[in-house]
Amino acid sequence: MSDYLRSYLTVGIFGLVGVALVGVFLGLGRILRPDHPNLAKNEAYESGVEPTGDMWSQANIRYYVFALLFVMFDVEAVFIFPWAARLEAYEVFGLIEMAIFIFILLLGLIYAWRKGVLKWV
């Protein structure tokens, strides 16, 4: 087995043991705990008063815009990491290219800023 594959396999084993451990905890809890559900207990918690309205209420649209902005920077990271790891291979040319790329992204951030997207009311 190659060194490369083995390290991933180890991570896989580690993950499986993690899932199993959580499973064992939950299973043990199921054996040990009492179980007497009733209507009042299974109501959603709303500080003691009876819950009203739809539980899946609408969330502020702003959260969605932040998620979109995050996608922008995450895709940026996809380009930055390989370049950062092999910096010497591209020298000055790569540096200028990356500077232009990051500058364009920053312009995007400033545009969003100017549009008031980043302002939390």
């Binding site: 043990l28 705990r33 209507l39 207990k41 299974n42």
Partner: peptide, 12 residues
């Protein structure tokens, strides 16, 4: 102690 507590799953 938490192992011995009742586990509630809300109806909703």
């Amino acid at each position: 102690k938490l192992f011995f507590k009742e586990d509630l799953v809300p109806d909703n």
